[in-house]
Write a protein that binds this DNA or RNA. Structure first.
Lengths: 185, 185
DNA sequence: AAAATACTATACAGTTTTGTATAAAATAGT
DNA sequence: ACTATTTTATACAAAACTGTATAGTATTTT
């Protein structure tokens, strides 16, 4: 993969999060990335394609990071579901946290037929299934139900943190999650 | 207040929710409202001012509706906090539900210095305080803590419903809310 | 060294954006 | 009926937007 393609993806991710997707023009992206529109359109045929790739990479990076964290902390399935919100807190409170891609994207492209909205919706569903897998492996009886409840806390906390950085909302999500997990065993 | 001003507000609310705020031009708004830009700019000096008024009216309408529902159902404070999510479910599952204004607006205007973002953030905080008031009146000990947890479930469920209509997420939010409320007494 | 590829620089087409100027028409108040 | 206000119709300015055409410069690859 090209160095410039990566740079464009990296810069776009940052600008989309800090200024909004529709409010960020390709001229701004190439200026910050230190390249030209010709190069951008060589790697991404349209702006929509760029947005989709940004979303895919953001989610992939997050999932990889989280998976590795959980694997390195404990191999016992019962521990992982408990540790989940600890690492989400670490992620959300990190200075580099700018928001969750698919949450913002789905708000900017509210039409359910829009490819960007579709991808966002799919990513949200996949993350919920990831939590459900953790819950299932932890031998929780109604794993899908708990996973959905935890995903609501997660998205709510991310939303709160996007609105007001340092809100501390994730601390309350953690407390609520603990109650729900303990009650589900 | 003018008939056309109301019509512009009404049409804008709908278009902002269904197409996005930045993706909706004033030309589209006046065309759907059946008027002209001159009239729009007579009542709203800038598009930003229009957006702010749309947000204020949306939130005010929601709060008024919810408050009346709670007042008509029970006068006992202990009941109200329990009924809260029942009415939120009614609101979210109504065919006319298109989303929560301040959640989408804060995503489209991520900069915390932006007036639209500031108003969204304020509305989110005020709704949380409204829940906290209900919890306090219901004699719940750590009312603020519970209110924040419930607000995360609320915003998470709305977010889920915005992504996929008919997701049923609010049912799970209700279940989780019941557990948290029962545990907080 | 020659050829192929990657990248830049610049200009521009075509559309869309917010906001305004100007003049005519409709409506309401007295 | 006359006046004042509201609303429309239309045109336009100025900027920003996505995407492309063209021509030249670097950089790799063979």
């Amino acid at each position: 993969m090209s160095r410039l393609k990566d740079k464009i993806l990296e810069v776009s991710t940052d600008l989309f999060q800090t200024r909004g997707i529709n409010s960020t023009g390709v001229d701004t992206i190439v200026a910050v990335a230190g390249t030209t529109k010709m190069t951008l359109y060589k790697y991404f045929h349209t702006k929509e394609e760029l947005i989709l790739e940004v979303l895919k990479k953001s989610q992939s990076d997050f999932q990889t990071w989280l998976d590795e964290k959980l694997d390195n902390s404990s191999k016992k399935p019962a521990d992982k579901i408990q540790l989940l919100f600890d690492y989400i807190e670490e992620w959300v409170t990190s200075p580099s946290f700018l928001g969750m891609g698919f949450i913002k994207a789905s708000a900017e492209f509210p039409n359910e037929e829009n490819p960007i909205h579709k991808l966002s919706s799919q990513q949200s569903r996949e993350f919920r299934q990831y939590i459900a897998k953790l819950a299932t492996e932890a031998s929780i009886k109604d794993a899908d139900s708990l996973a959905l409840q935890l995903s609501l806390l997660f998205e709510g906390a991310v939303q709160a943190e996007q609105m007001k950085r340092g809100s501390g909302a994730i601390k309350y999500a953690k407390k609520a999650a603990k109650i729900l997990i303990d009650g589900a065993h």
